[in-house]
Structure formats: C-alpha cells, structure tokens
Design a protein around this nucleic acid. Structure first.
Lengths: 197, 197
DNA sequence: AGAACAGGAAACCGATCGGTTTCCTGGATG
DNA sequence: CATCCAGGAAACCGATCGGTTTCCTGTTCT
C-alpha cells in the first residue's frame, strides 16, 4: 500500500488531487471559468496527465472543487451548532461572517452564486453543486426563523437569502463596502418579522 | 448622402451597428462572455468585416451594447418622473418592475451585475459601463429616500440596492421565484426607515 | 539491488478562437 | 448606363484551447 495522505500542513506535499482542487477553487474564483487548463495545472503543480486521469474534464474539476469546498464554507459561515446564542443572534452571525469576508480586498462575492452566473447552464455539474450549497443556507435561515417562532419563517428565510446574495454580490463587484450594512439590513427584517408574530 | 437610419420597425433593415448591438446584448446576456464573434455576427446578420470596422474588438462591442441598453433599462425600471406617486410608491415601483421582469422564464438576473461578475476585471470597459448603470439605481433610491425624509437616506438606499441585486441574482439563478418577495422586503425596509424618522 | 509505479515536464493534436483580408453583390449616385 | 461603395460571405492566419501521449525521474515495495 502506498502512503496517500501526506502529513497535514506540509505545503508541497498534499496529494495531487488536493493541490488541484485547491488551485481550481482559487483560480475559478479569481479568474472565472475562462482560465486555461495549463494555467490551472501550473498553479497546482500538477501535470495535465495527472489531472486527466483524476477527472474527466476541466468542468469536472471545477464541480469537484466547488463540492469539496462547500462544507468548509458553510461551517465557517454558520454559528456553532451548540451555543448559547438565540435564533436572532444565530441568524445575524451569518451576516457578520459575510461582512468579515467582504472586508478582504480580494473578496469577489459568493463563489457559488458566481459559478451559477458564469456558467449559465443550470444543468452543469458545477451549477448543480452550487445550487445545493446555496439551498443549505436558506434551509438554515428557515430553521432558525422557525425556532424563533416568527409568523412566516419561509418568508423571512427567503428575505435573508436575498440580503445575503445582494450584499455579497455588491461587495464582490465593488459597489458597496457594507460596513454594518448586511447585519443592519438582516436585523431590520428579523425584527419586523418578529413584530408581526 | 446615403440613407443611414431605416424606417423604424423594419426588422432586417436596422443599421449594421444597431443589429450588432442588439445581438450582442442578447447573446452576452444569454450565453455570457464566451460566445464566439462568429456566432455574434451570424446572429446579427453582420459580417465580421463590418463588425471590426465599427469596433476595435469583441469586448468593445459588449461595452457599447451595455452602454446603449442602459438608458432604456433605467427608464423602464424607474417610475415616470412626473407622477402623482409618493416616494414610497415610487421606490416600490422599481421592485414591482423587477418582479415583473423576473417572471419571464428567460430571466437571468441583472445584466449589468452579471457583466461585472463574469469579467472580473473592474477596469474592463464593459465593467465600467455596468458600474455606472448600477450607480444610477442607488442614486434614484437615495434621492427618493431623501424626498421621503427618512433619517438615513443613504442607508436605506444601500439597503434597497442590496435587495435589488439579491432578488435579481436569486431569480436569475433560479433559486427563488420572488412572487412578491422583492416588493415585500423593500416595503419592510422602507417602513422601518420611516419609523426611525 | 532491481522492478514497478506514481506523477511531473513537455511535445503534440485537432478544434476553435479573435481578428484580417479577399472577393463579390446590389443598391444608390452622377 | 457607368460608377461607386457599403456591406455580406467566406477563406484565411496565428494563437490558444482542451485533451492525449511520450518520456523520464524519484520513490516505494520485494
């Protein structure tokens, strides 16, 4: 048996597959679907030979990169499952995270929204993965809204999803720097929904 | 002197430039930056020869198409300047328009946001045009918010811009069908801003 | 040590792209 | 009628793309 997984943290020593997915996630985000496979492989330090015996196509690499990255992003975005926070704070937590991410000058918006916008085809593998990731967030919003006992949890969840996508998009295209904007907007909507309770 | 502008409405008789910009706007929206120049010219019924003596590059065509389309879209989106509507109704008018547009199964989100997302380069000619168009909308929001006398017109304007971009994006990627969602969300934010007055 | 193999470097291939050029036609001008 | 020219069809060109193949090196297993 061969030693597949290198010791964690050894930079150049990750498996070719992981290096490839890392570079794919990064480059796809920064440069879009257009980046040539050569550039991708060069950045990953992986030969095209290896890439094509690991994946069927460039598109498959992107889909896999998006899929592998989703759990980490969701985990980073959502509050810890067991905490002393109430539903309202748990909801706002997501928007604080968003604003935190958007503070980076390299922020280019939600990678999953971008993926769906760029590859217009909703049946594209990467698009399907992205849609699933996006649904996870609305599901969280809805569950918390329900827990908060608001009158129309589904409405509030969809509203918050709109705010999330709008804020991330606008931050990504440099139209806004949302210092407190996302949190404030979400809070207003949450409070309005609770008043109608 | 030659007759340049054909009689309005005669389908195949528009000037090559107009046919080109029409096709460019349409194809760029539906297919993205990737469409080949051949496809663009074929759809426009224009030879590449004509295209390249009218424009410097494919990118220039896109920028010009976006620029030419902006006034019409803004005019369609905004309420008539002289009307009996109050600021609140004038603001909501935009979101009614958005929902109306999003009802089409061909709706793919705000073309200007999409442009900026696809061509990541903010210095790209088309990106600059798109940014300007987007700014017009926020300016309208701010002006109306001011007219309504809300405490923080700039905050409300930015919030509404977030809702606009979020709703259009989500409708475009098929994540939501916003039946009343955009209007309801905007109304909630407007009313909350007025209460703080 | 020798064999087997994972995997990087790079040549290679056909298709396609953005852009240029050549050629030709049909309608306006004198 | 002779001319002119805007503009479409299409050949063409070099660059680049996605994908395949060949070759070779360093490591691991026996």
């Amino acid at each position: 048996m061969t030693t597949k997984k290198a010791a964690a943290g050894t930079p150049g020593k990750a498996t070719p597959r992981d290096r490839l997915l890392d570079a794919a996630g990064e480059l796809f985000y920064r440069e879009g679907v257009g980046i040539p496979t050569d550039a991708l492989c060069k950045a990953a330090g992986v030969s095209k030979r290896s890439m094509y015996q690991l994946f069927d196509s460039k598109d498959a690499v992107f889909a896999a990169a998006l899929e592998r990255g989703a759990p980490a992003l969701v985990a980073w975005l959502l509050p810890p499952p067991e905490g002393e926070l109430g539903p309202r704070e748990r909801l706002l937590y997501v928007f604080e995270r968003l604003e935190q991410a958007a503070r980076s000058p390299n922020y280019l918006g939600c990678p999953y929204a971008a993926a769906q916008v760029e590859l217009k085809d909703p049946s594209h593998a990467a698009s399907v993965v992205a849609a699933r990731a996006k649904r996870q967030l609305v599901d969280f919003f809805r569950a918390e809204a329900q827990r908060a006992g608001v009158a129309e949890p589904d409405l509030l969840a969809r509203q918050l999803a709109v705010v999330y996508d709008g804020a991330s998009t606008r931050a990504g295209i440099g139209a806004d720097d949302l210092r407190g904007l996302a949190v404030a907007t979400a809070a207003t909507l949450i409070d309005a929904a609770r008043l109608a309770e």
